[in-house]
């Protein structure tokens, strides 16, 4: 694994929590999201464990900070029956598609390596996921659900959306975050408001860090 460097050193989108960029409704929504405990409600324990392992491969997270509980975020979305609202023929509704896909992935893992997916080394997990992405997995457990459709439209989509719904991810990519009532003033190329993340340029963290500390 290569070393991760902060592109936006010291930037924390939550520093704006009490400022004019956040309103009550947003604070309510994010409070709820931040209070989600890393345990399943929709998934079974076994399924949940597999989702955790998959999420680690789709969106690997650095060990130096508390991880975003991606699997729990996906779990809550399914538990609350928040759906995309469109699916291909033969594809079950979102929650059922997850259950079937997880079962099939574990079946593939067992057939190839005689282990559950979560127990595989990372390289083999990646290998299986790549095979799913390119439509090569054909175990009977998939049923009418094609593995590449599951990978692209359900598994990956839900995990990626869950991770980038979290303030930790927002800080990581230097996004301004919630913005109401205050939006932005300086809009043009290379323009930045004092309440936006400063990017470390030319390896010079100090200037960006100082600016990011002032974000409110």
């Amino acid at each position: 694994m290569h070393e991760r460097r902060d592109r936006y050193p010291g930037y924390d989108v939550l520093a704006k929590w009490s400022g004019p960029s956040w309103n009550d409704k947003t604070r309510d929504v994010i409070t709820r999201r931040l209070s989600i405990a890393p345990e399943p409600r929709f998934f079974t324990r076994d399924e949940y464990e597999t989702v955790v392992a998959i999420a680690d491969r789709i969106v690997p997270q650095p060990a130096v900070r508390p991880p975003v509980p991606i699997a729990a975020l996906v779990d809550r979305k399914l538990a609350e029956q928040i759906m995309d609202g469109f699916r291909r023929p033969g594809v079950p509704r979102d929650g059922e598609a997850w259950r079937r896909g997880l079962k099939a992935l574990n079946a593939e893992s067992a057939a190839a390596y005689d282990k559950r997916f979560a127990e595989l080394p990372e390289a083999l997990q990646d290998k299986l996921l790549r095979a799913a992405q390119s439509g090569e997995l054909k175990a009977a457990e998939w049923g009418g659900l094609r593995c590449e459709v599951f990978f692209k439209h359900r598994l990956g989509r839900d995990i990626v959306l869950a991770y980038y719904a979290h303030p930790t991810a927002w800080s990581e990519i230097g996004w301004g975050g919630p913005a109401s009532p205050r939006g932005y003033v300086r809009l043009d190329l290379d323009e930045r408001d004092p309440w936006e993340a400063a990017e470390a340029k030319d390896g010079n963290d100090a200037t960006a860090r100082r600016s990011n500390r002032g974000v409110r």
């Binding site: 960029s21 956040w22 309103n23 009550d24 409704k25 947003t26 309510d28 929504v29 994010i30 999201r33 979305k77 928040i82 959306l161 719904a165 975050g177 919630p178 913005a179 109401s180």
Partner: peptide, 11 residues
């Protein structure tokens, strides 16, 4: 009062 600055919520 009903709209959050949040992609997930606003689905």
């Amino acid at each position: 009062e009903d709209f959050a600055s949040d992609e997930s919520e606003q689905t």
